[in-house]
Design a protein around this nucleic acid. Sequence first.
DNA 1: GAACTTACCTAG
DNA 2: TTAGCTAGGTAAGTTC
Length: 916
Amino acid sequence: MDFKRRNGGPFVGGVSQAKRGKMATEWEDSPSHFEEELSMFDEGEMDMEEMEGQAGHDVIPVGDLFSADLNPRWKRPNAPTLDSSSETLVFQQIDLDYYLGESLAGMPGQLQGKVPIIRMFGVTDGGNSVCCHVHGFAPYFYVPAPNGFTSEYLGEFKRELNTAVLKDMRSNKDNISVTVLAVDITRKESMYGYHGKRSLDFLRITMAMPRLIAPAKRLLEQGLKFGPFPIQSYQSYEANIDFEIRFMVDSDVVGCCWIELPKGKYRASLCQYEVDVGWTDMISHPAEGDWQRIAPLRVLSFDIECAGRKGIFPEADKDPVIQIASMVQRQGETEPFIRTVFTLQSCASIVGSQILCFTQEKQLLQSWAEFLRTVDPDIITGYNIQNFDFPYLLNRAAALKVNLFPYLGRVRGIKSVLRDLNFQSKQMGRRENKTINMEGRVQFDLLQVIFLNSGLKLFTVLLRDYKLRSYTLNAVSFHFLQEQKEDVQHSIITDLQNGNEQTRRRLAVYCLKDAYLPLRLLQKLMCVINYMEMARVTGVPLTYLLSRGQQIKVVSQLLRQAMKQDLVMPVVKTEGGEDYTGATVIEPEKGYYSLPIATLDFSSLYPSIMMAHNLCYTTLLQKSSVEKLGLSPDDFIKTPTGDLFVKNSVRKGLLPEILENLLSARKRAKAELKKETDPFKKQVLDGRQLALKISANSVYGFTGAQVGKLPCLEISQSVTGFGRQMIERTKQLVESKYTISNGYTADAKVIYGDTDSVMVKLGVATVKEAMTIGKEAAEWVSSHFTPPIKLEFEKVYYPYLLINKKRYAGLYFSTSADTHDKMDCKGIETVRRDNCPLVANLINTCLQKILIDRDPQGAVAHAKEVISDLLCNRIDISQLVITKELTRTAQEYAGKQAHVELAERSVCLFFCCCII
DNA sequence: GAACTTACCTAG
DNA sequence: TTAGCTAGGTAAGTTC
């Protein structure tokens, strides 16, 4: 569908006019490059196709006679029969949810009424799908036992709470009679604050269903009366943990791990391995060694075309779906093994793909849904499928009353429903999203992936210095693949459909490519591997990574670490407060530097501060507790913000422990990466080390998230406080040692620094000298700080143009002292997306002239020329348009003329040149 | 027209 | 029911 992602404007480095012209003629004369690529797929498969009695480029006028049986390769491989008494079942779990169902005789847990059952979906090594029902795990939470509580009161407490919860229910359609399953006394300690490692009696309250936790917690907070105890309010612990996460933490299951069901411990029931198991019988394998492998998952990518009316965005209740292209690929393979287009009306054949023609739109939709169920993909991808293609299909199917369409998940009988979801965060603002439930399948919308990662910097290597200006599939594909969509204007789609089988063929090729590109992007960005590694490292299900925020990942790790020490996490009420002080930005000595500037950085600054000073919830010490606990000054530290934390000799913090695990695992992954020769395994390991780094960096953010699960400003403000102290100290140290009086050629001067870095003018003439002294200085400064805090030499800028705080440019030397790696621009118009291309290009060219050619006069001349071109209307209008497609629906506003802006910016540039 | 506020985007 | 953080530049609008 082109409407959703029309290309609002040219992007930097876009395809040249000449190439575009060529592509247009290619349409008429010869097959496009993409068509050749498609036909190549076919060659290797001819033999197999013949065996199956079906060529890959068949046109099948199925009409009303559609049947999946005609297409044997759509199906998963046959599942060998499994004898549960003598064989184990091993599969990679890829999604996990729960439902309420009848209890199963012989399985652990409650026997009466509805019980929560965890459902794990996965794939075996042989490519067979598994649905595993895990029985017997019930939700629970904790409250501290009141003073004087003994086990004799357990029964009464349970009865009273049960009664209160029942009374609280407005309706009881499930006819629940028992809400509280059990109350036990257990020794636990709150993870918030250090209080002398004193574990206390906690009540562990097990509820019949996850949704009963919230009312039970609320009632206990309001105050419960039971036995001889006075009415009191109970602070609850871990009552705000998702049931899925609770299960995963307790049973040591992480996202995408391998699960083993021992022989004799599970029961098989339906098709392709649908099994039942007790939760304690299941074995979860840590993602190490051989268990890091990935099952042959099926990835389906698709794209739809609609015949809209002239100039109107297609509406599902009026405009028909005319084509759906699908490509299916096994994870780890390089080519899709299914390439089909479902078309409305006839369509000429396309070598390398199969065309299914329908006369009725209703049949087309119903057949595609059947196709999807037959292919049974584990992962569904596409571009903007979440907010466009899927909603459109569901709405269209509803409008046409295709009643069997909306069953797209892997659980029989569960309807896929469209829901609106409102997302809000300080960072992203308010965002509206749609969701479609599809049990057991992971929806991987590439637009979401790219969008989220532009903020998360997961693909920094590929994004490198300039971020995407446009989020159209076209721009994204060009950016990452140097490849573009087939050239079809959305305005002519309806005309192509109303033409003949040749024009519809042209549309089909276009549609196929739109289904193919996301698959290629998925591969290029190694999404599946990277996300799987992230799920494994942080312990959350794969689906959470695209649908939830950052916090859940830290919560999952925190709970896992806390459980080992019998620590429990309190539920805190969230209310936004005052912001705290962040990092220092050293006042820049603005100007142009025609000599090397060395840059020194603290690597992983915030994680290393937390580790070095043992900052954690569990080590936070109240001033009043120091005496009470009899602590000596040697036992704790005072941070720059005046907060107290006990040292790790007293108690080692959970957060430092998590960070150490993450960073040491990262080191291991990097070491393994070096040794590994297999390119596929290399990818896995690289994805892993990246996931580990990102996870480490998000721990600090979690403690400072005031509207979050467990904010602790004492930690976050201490972290930034230490950071401020360190950068100041670094400046002093460098400037005090590298002086003429100490025998160096010049007095060193820190001319700029931001958060974790200092830019030093060492006064040496060559890049090589700057590198040597820079390395030495980094090492020497590091010795003044507590490990693992480490200052590293990173790069030399030469020359360097420092315009303002967070705005500078320079030639970047890191690997070789002879040639620069790149021109590095920070915060300048060239990297900002709120400027029109003309301004960005002009500034970029000027910077090149100044820094590379060292010709400021040339820069001035260029600027003058461009301005005169502009005033004489010699500039293409596209250069003056700002594209803004940060929201999913392509949003484009034109007409912001650059005249004024440009004039001002040129003045600014002249000023820079004057400095020189 | 200075002083302040807001929107947007970036650095780290 | 859901949401990582702060610092800071620049343009444009608003107030006095």
